[in-house]
Simulated scan of single mutants.
Amino acid sequence: MDYRMLEHRIANIVERMHAIGGDVSQVKIEAAASSQQIAQCENQLGCKLPKSFKKVLLEFSSALYLRWVFPDDFQLDGELDGIFSGMLHWDLGLLKEINDNKNAWITKVFSDPENDYDKVWHYTLAFYEVGNGDYIAFDLVENSLDACVIYLSHDDGEGHGYKLADNFIDFLETWSRIAFVGGEDWQWVAFTANAQSGLLPESQCAKSFRSLLKLTI
């Protein structure tokens, strides 16, 4: 993972949002995590963190936050008309709390692993709370060392169960090229082809989006 490139893309996104009069929350990039912090978190969670997620935490940052919002008078058209904001965040120190919240949904609402909708929630490790009851999570069903990234919708969202990327590093690489649009599924679903395609930064929608915002990422 080229972390300098990631930081460059974040800076480019912030610059373009300021240029069009958008609002950008303070960018926070915390120091990398220690092996001890990772081990403590894994002990709390009762599972190992996926390989590429752990790599980013150890080599780059234990916690990152960025959010932008278009100005009120900025409107995209066509398939992109639902986009109004973007947000990237993760925090090693909050993983236990995030997953306690996610697991509460499973216990109270999505408890049946035999139900096609419910089972998507099971055997997952969430790292991103969208803020509306949805989550972005790692799919642990395959018991893989490097789990894919999926979307969990609590209210029949179109993106429920969609694979966003093959792993966390792929997720950062592809999502950064569409300015971390979302996290609500109805903001990023235009940049996918189907439930298994992942985010497609070279799709026509993605190219049009970057062109409209004059993003060179």
Rank of each mutant, 00 (worst) to 15 (best):
E114K: 15
F138N: 02
D139G: 08
Y123L: 02
E129R: 15
K96H: 07
L94S: 07
G131P: 06
T124H: 04
K108C: 01
N115D: 10
V130T: 11
W105Y: 15
I136E: 09
A126G: 09
A137C: 10
A126H: 11
E129V: 09
K119E: 04
H122T: 02
I136C: 05
V130N: 04
D116T: 10
L88N: 09
T124S: 02
D116K: 15
W105S: 06
T124R: 05
W90K: 08
N143F: 10
D100T: 13
P113M: 12
D91N: 15
N115Q: 05
Y128D: 04
Y117C: 00
S111W: 11
W90T: 04
N99C: 08
P113L: 12
L140W: 01
D139Q: 13
H122V: 02
T107G: 00
L95M: 15
G131V: 11
T107Q: 09
S144Q: 13
A126I: 07
D112W: 13
D134S: 04
L92N: 02
N132S: 10
N101A: 15
G93V: 07
F110R: 04
Y128A: 03
K102F: 03
G133Y: 12
T124Q: 01
A137Q: 13
E142H: 14
G131S: 12
D100C: 04
Y135T: 00
N99M: 07
D134Q: 08
H89M: 08
N103F: 08
W90S: 03
G131L: 05
